[in-house]
Amino acid sequence: MLKYLFVLLSIFSIHAHAAPIRIASDIWCPYICDNQTGYVVELTRRAFEIQGQPVEFQIFPYKRALIELQRNNIDAVLALTSSAIVENQLINADVIVGYNSNDFYTLVDSNETFEQITDLNNTQQAAIVTGYHYGVELDAWFGAHPNTYFASGRDPLAMNIIRLVKGRHSVIIDNKNVIEYTASQLNLTQQLRYAGTIGKPVPLYVGFNPHNKAYAVTFTNGIEMLKANGEYQQIMSKYKILPALTSDEARHKNLQKFLPIFN
């Protein structure tokens, strides 16, 4: 009994002094938000914390997050497609944390619809986020049309929405939940219109640094533990009603900083 107690105490001591796992992503609310909120952030944090592993989150633009991971400055990047994980030679824990879709939004007075890629041929200018993958065919279309606008920075989708409202673009492409959440924080929801979706939803995963394969295993185990104790469903249920609860003043004020740029 004393031997087993010593082993348990040793394990506890190791976890208590464990260096935090460094996880990064750009802002993609309601999946990944400021102030360490968003359902993917909460699930990931709790998956590690429930096993005694501290977590440190950082907000980086998408492309920089991948660069910092390649430099071993961070250990994981949230919400990646399987193709992005393979392309960057990362470890996939094979736990789906959400789905991405290519949803198209225009201004309310537009009558454009988007159901297939050829529908883009008649639009004035499309705006996307630099570094993201929208599928082979859409990526090829964006690359072949120099008038495509690639937004970057800390909150590129917010800038695309504002530029759309200001008449700089005719359509923006991103995930429907993310567009509607960000537009609500900018008080611009009533000016946007859902114009269609091209392609099927794509699963999203957490991509781990190949030098720390054990973190992927820990994450998988943690998610199973959260499902077993009910926390997983609690977090998911909390964010299902996110639009009714999102009065995050810090997020709102941060997005308002973009507005003077376009006045």
Results as ranks from 00 to 15, higher is better:
Leu186Gln: 10
Asp75Lys: 03
Glu87Ile: 00
Val171Lys: 05
Asn88His: 13
Tyr134Gln: 07
Leu186Gly: 07
Leu186Ala: 10
Tyr181His: 12
Met1Tyr: 04
Met1Phe: 09
Ser10Asn: 04
Val95Lys: 10
Arg193Trp: 00
His17Leu: 12
Lys240Tyr: 13
Thr123Tyr: 02
Leu255His: 01
Ile161Thr: 09
Val202Met: 11
Trp28Leu: 08
Asn209Tyr: 05
Asn212Leu: 09
Gln89Asp: 12
Lys227Met: 10
Gly38Ile: 03
Asn72Thr: 06
Glu42Ile: 03
Phe142Thr: 00
Phe208Asp: 01
Thr148Phe: 07
Pro201His: 05
Leu8Ile: 15
Phe6Tyr: 14
Tyr181Lys: 05
Met1Gly: 11
Lys238Cys: 01
Gly199His: 03
Ala151Lys: 05
Pro20Phe: 06
Val97His: 01
Asp109Lys: 12
Ser13Pro: 02
Leu204Asn: 06
Phe6Ala: 15
Glu112Arg: 09
Lys257Pro: 01
Leu5Asp: 09
Gln53Tyr: 08
Ile261Phe: 11
Ser170Ala: 12
Gln234Ser: 11
Ser170Pro: 01
Tyr132Ser: 05
Leu9Ala: 13
Thr37Asp: 11
Gly143Lys: 10
Ala93Ser: 14
Tyr134His: 09
Met225Ser: 10
Ile161Lys: 12
Gln234Thr: 12
Ala126Phe: 08
Ile11Ala: 07
Asn100Trp: 03
Ile85Phe: 00
Ile74Phe: 09
Glu249His: 04
Leu2Asp: 10
Thr218Met: 13
Gln89Arg: 13
Glu42Thr: 05
Gln256Val: 00
Pro203Val: 08
Ser13Gly: 09
Asn175Leu: 09
Asn187Ser: 14
Leu107Met: 14
